[in-house]
Amino acid sequence: MVGTLLGVGVSQLLQQRSVARSERFTRTEQVRQERLQVYSSFAGSLMMYRRAQMERWLICNGGEFEESDAALRARAFDLRMEVYEGLFRVRLVTTGSAAADAAQEAMEVISRIPKAADEDAYVALAREAKQKVTAFVTVAKDHM
């Protein structure tokens, strides 16, 4: 009788530990999947915003597009709001500040593109913006 009770107790303890381990794994995987979705969506939004800002600079400096300057500006502002939303989501799912800081830096560089004084500054800002997005992805990957 004592052996049976002892066996039941040990079995219960092992089952509880197994369930707890399984729940921890499931929660960790859910957090990882959420971060992956948030980070990848934000990086995509940054690149679309970068393109819109580059097009704004080009149209203001003699480039020709089917869209008017006003339409490009409106699209850039819409994308900026999408990027801000993504930035807030990054901050919500990030436990440290490195990913959020890298995200903010990328956004700030991209926002400066239309203000470039000349083509050299434009090319430099576009390149720096791409590097900042890549840096964000690298930091985010390490945070996964």
Results as ranks from 00 to 15, higher is better:
69 D>E: 09
63 G>A: 10
75 R>S: 11
133 V>A: 12
134 T>E: 09
139 V>P: 12
55 E>V: 08
28 T>C: 10
5 L>A: 14
126 A>I: 09
68 S>D: 00
52 A>P: 06
22 S>F: 01
77 F>W: 01
106 A>Q: 01
69 D>G: 15
133 V>C: 05
86 G>D: 04
122 Y>W: 00
27 R>C: 10
78 D>C: 08
78 D>E: 11
88 F>D: 07
87 L>Y: 15
22 S>N: 09
126 A>H: 02
60 C>H: 13
85 E>C: 09
65 F>W: 08
100 A>W: 06
52 A>V: 02
73 R>L: 12
7 G>P: 04
6 L>N: 13
36 L>A: 13
104 Q>N: 14
144 M>R: 13
92 L>Y: 01
2 V>E: 08
42 F>D: 06
90 V>H: 07
25 F>I: 02
100 A>R: 13
136 F>P: 05
34 E>R: 15
105 E>H: 05
93 V>F: 08
60 C>P: 09
130 K>F: 15
99 A>G: 09
72 L>Y: 07
29 E>W: 01
62 G>I: 07
77 F>V: 03
59 I>E: 07
44 G>Y: 06
7 G>D: 05
144 M>S: 13
118 D>N: 15
143 H>C: 08
94 T>K: 03
9 G>R: 14
93 V>L: 02
99 A>D: 03
76 A>L: 03
76 A>K: 12
128 E>S: 00
74 A>P: 00
35 R>E: 08
110 I>K: 07
55 E>Q: 05
97 S>N: 01
78 D>K: 08
